[in-house]
Every structure is written in structure tokens, then in C-alpha cells.
Design a protein around this nucleic acid. Sequence first.
DNA 1: CATTTCACCTGGTGGC
DNA 2: TGCCACCAGGTGAAAT
Length: 315
Amino acid sequence: MPELPEVETIARGVHARVRGDRILDVWFSSKPQPFKNPPALQAKGLEGRTILAVQRNGKHIVVSLGDKPPQPSSKVSGPEVRLPHAVAKSQRLAVPVAKASRPEGRPPHAVPVPVEWIVHLGMTGRLLVTTPDAPIAPHTHARLTLSSGKELRFVDPRRFGRLELRDLAKTGSFVAAGAEPLQIESEPFAALFRGRKLAIKAALLNQTLLSGVGNIYADESLFRAGIRPRRQAGRLSREELERLRLALREVLQNAIRLGGSSVSDYVDANGVRGFFQLEHRVYQRTGEPCLVCKTTIKRITVAGRSTHYCPHCQH
DNA sequence: CATTTCACCTGGTGGC
DNA sequence: TGCCACCAGGTGAAAT
């Protein structure tokens, strides 16, 4: 379901509502599908931590978590760390992350954090902030009880989504493989496609080249750039590639402003639909007239995905 | 190595 | 109403 603008919208919404919250309790479903490392391990790693920030990286949601306070009820422990100190420390740490103005993209974390919880929504995943008494939607796979009384829930009918807890001492901070489409400059963008024989649409969907572009925004940016989806990536002129880069940036920025595209059931962290589907010019408009030239929009298959374009406007 | 295809899942829609 | 084929925002493993 969600591409860069939808994931950005969700990450911003979750960040605004749970930043600074402590995770008191974690419940996971017994389905193995969405868990990249064992759910018991993830639950143990999450419980007790403070949420410092929620950010998008490619199509991934990165939840940065602070240190755990010492367990009060465990065995007799040394007096090294007292609870008030630990609380004060993590709250102090939360400030620079929270205050750092974060437009789009991937700023490095302001402070090192011990673990990150990575949420990938797959095709049908949702990340929702609710009250505890909100009805549990079918296919709810995770419920995090928070100290403010809210719940953070992960719902995913098809289970293509993934949840992963990363220990930063072992793995380092999560960084998506591909370049950020909103940040990349002209020359590095052109270099991504040089010498490549695959269709430009397939290249746009390849997350190791660019991270965050999916089926909707690939089609919409190619239409706005006037480029046919089956053109060989390596044969596009420098001018065409620059048009594509700017069209892609424009379309993603506008989609973020409108809260993403709700094609069927996408909603943000508050359960609110987006509006960019009203701006789609080719995606899922097969058989309808082009909004520019009235030519009938065609549907073909590229890279195994349904692909929509205007035969007159795109060359 | 680069590229393509397919399986992974559930649910909705439209035809018969 | 039921059954079936087909479609869906993604992605990584297997095949070519």
C-alpha cells in the first residue's frame, strides 16, 4: 500500500502523538509472518523504553528508542543506577531529537540511541495511535501500551509488512539502501540509470537505486515527465532524466502535502484518509481520457506491475 | 552481475 | 447466494 508520501504522513503523525511516551507493555499476535526477529525478543527489547523519535527512511518507519530504566522488581541489584536519574536522562535525550526541525529526508540521529524498531508496512500495513478501548481491528499484530494511556497498533491483513528490532551496538543506525528521491541532485540521479537496460519504470521501483518510489508515484512521475514507462533507463537523455527527477520530487512533495493517496483503505496514524488520489492523472485511470489531451489512458504490465500512461503525452 | 518472475497473504470486485 | 478469476500501495528469493 504505502509509498514514500504515505509512510512520511504516518511517521509524522505517530511522531507527533507518541514522542516522549514510554512503552509499558507489548502484545504481539502469534502469526510468524510480520516478525523479522522473534516477537518475544522484540517485546523484551521494547518494554520500558522511551520513544525518542519516529521518522521515515525510504518506505521504512524508524522508531528510535531510548535507554531502559533499571527494573525495579528484579533481583537484588547494585545501587549504581537509581530510577529518577534514568528517567531524567532519557527525557533530556529526547529534547534535541524532538526539537530538531525535520523536513523531509533522513537527518542523522541527533543522539545515539540503543535500539530502533523498524516498521515496514508492506502492501496493507497500518500504524495507528488509538485509545486502549478502541475496537481491535482484524489482523492486528502488535499493540504497544504507552505511559500516556494511548496505544500504538500495527494492523496488516496481508502480512507483507515487517517488524524488526535492531540493536544499534551491533548493526548501526538503519539506512535504506537507495537514495532519497527528495534529496538527490541532478548528477547522482542521472548516474543511477547510466548503462542500465531495464525499463525506466522498473528502475524507479528498484529500492536499491531510489528508496520510497512505488507503483503510484512511478506512473505519476513518468506521466508528468512525458516519458513512457517501457523506455530503457540507460537510453534516456540527460534532459529527460532531469525532467523525471523534478517531476518525481514535485509529485512526492505534493502528495505529502495532501496526506498521501488513499486508493482503497490507506489511512494515517489517526485513521484519516489522504487526498492525493484526486490528483492522479494516470494511475488507475485506464480507459479514461487524458486530462491534458483526451487520449485514452492505457494500461500495460511493466516489471510485473500494472502500469498506466498516456500514449500521446508520453514518448 | 543484471534482470525477470514468482511466491508470499487476504480481501474486494465483477462475471456467470 | 456461490464459485471463480483477477486485481491490489511491496519485496526478496529463485530462475534466467
